[in-house]
């Protein structure tokens, strides 16, 4: 065995330096955490969801702490695809990391508009289609919870994009395997999961909802066992690669997702707790491989079944 294990993974022909990515919406467009870490050292930056026009999002309060996690109802505030392309993408390209652009919309045509605008743009390695945001009333969640709609929107995005298309799935469904298969049938190059679990918090002193939107998406270590189970189920239901996320906070968590079937992983809320966490996870996976005499990280993928 060579002393340095191989960390590279590949999804739909795109090679990633290592399997550790950032989860959309928790890492801005890389600028903020780029002050703490060298973005080249992680597998990819997945940018905050972008829509065809700027979205205002929900009023404050938008975040609340919960046991080993948090709720959010940001409501996909974003500056729109044009500002993303003018301001954020040049920064990301300059940083030398792989770039995944997360796409959101209220209805299929809004998604297609963004995908068409991103089509062929250099420096975008992959698109992630967010059909699963629990904080947008009109679109998002319903799209991602109906297999027919899901297949249709997957095919619609696939047809319009030069880049590989990854569909981000909601955990707020009865059977994740049905959704995963619908994406595969629609031509998805990969799927990612899980987005946040729908939750609620009530302030008992004031007898009011804590979040402006009443409900919010739960993320963080609290959701990890649910996410691992869903990654396991989804990865066994399809033959396209799966990017796993939900509560990853250390290298062992990342390894757990890969053993369950993920080809790569994404780190979300943990960035808020430790801005260096992604780099530490990369290092920790390397150490894990050395400790277990594994010379290629891909050997972990789906190894427990």
């Amino acid at each position: 065995m060579s002393s340095e294990p191989r960390m590279e993974v590949e999804i739909a022909g795109v090679r990633f330096r290592n399997p550790v990515m950032t989860a959309s919406g928790t890492f801005g467009s890389g600028m903020e955490y780029g002050r703490f870490i060298d973005l080249r050292e992680i597998g990819a930056v997945t940018a905050k969801g972008v829509a065809i026009v700027p979205w205002e999002g929900n009023p404050a309060p938008r975040v609340a702490e919960t046991a080993s996690g948090m709720l959010n109802c940001i409501g996909l505030q974003n500056p729109g695809v044009e500002t993303f392309l003018e301001r954020d993408l040049p920064f990301l390209r300059e940083s030398g990391t792989r770039v995944i652009v997360n796409v959101c919309g209220h209805e299929p045509d809004e998604y297609y508009g963004v995908v068409e605008r991103l089509n062929g743009v250099p420096g975008i390695d992959m698109l992630e289609i967010n059909v699963s945001c629990p904080n947008v009333k009109a679109g998002g969640l319903t799209l991602g919870t109906d297999p027919k709609m899901l297949e249709e929107i997957t095919a619609g995005c696939r047809k319009r994009a030069s880049q590989p298309v990854m569909i981000k799935l909601s955990p707020n469904v009865t059977d994740i395997r049905v959704m995963a298969r619908a994406c595969e049938a629609g031509g998805a190059d990969a799927i990612s999961l899980i987005n946040t679990l729908m939750g609620m918090k009530i302030d008992t002193e004031r007898q009011t909802f804590v979040l402006s939107n009443r409900t919010g998406g739960l993320s963080g270590p609290a959701i990890k066992p649910v996410a691992v189970r869903m990654v396991y189920e989804a990865s066994r239901a399809v033959s396209i690669p799966v990017v796993g996320m939900g509560g990853i906070a250390c290298a062992e968590d990342a390894v757990e997702f890969m053993l369950a079937g993920a080809t790569a992983v994404a780190v979300g809320m943990a960035n808020f707790v430790n801005p260096y966490v992604t780099i530490e996870i990369v290092e920790g996976i390397r150490n894990y491989l050395i400790r277990h005499h594994i010379d290629d990280v891909r050997e972990l993928i789906g190894a427990v079944h």
Partner: peptide, 17 residues
């Protein structure tokens, strides 16, 4: 003052109108 998550501008959790 506003409720915060990241504290560094990345999550859009802490907005003021």
């Amino acid at each position: 003052e506003e409720r915060m998550a990241c504290g560094v501008g990345a999550c859009l959790g802490c907005v003021a109108k």
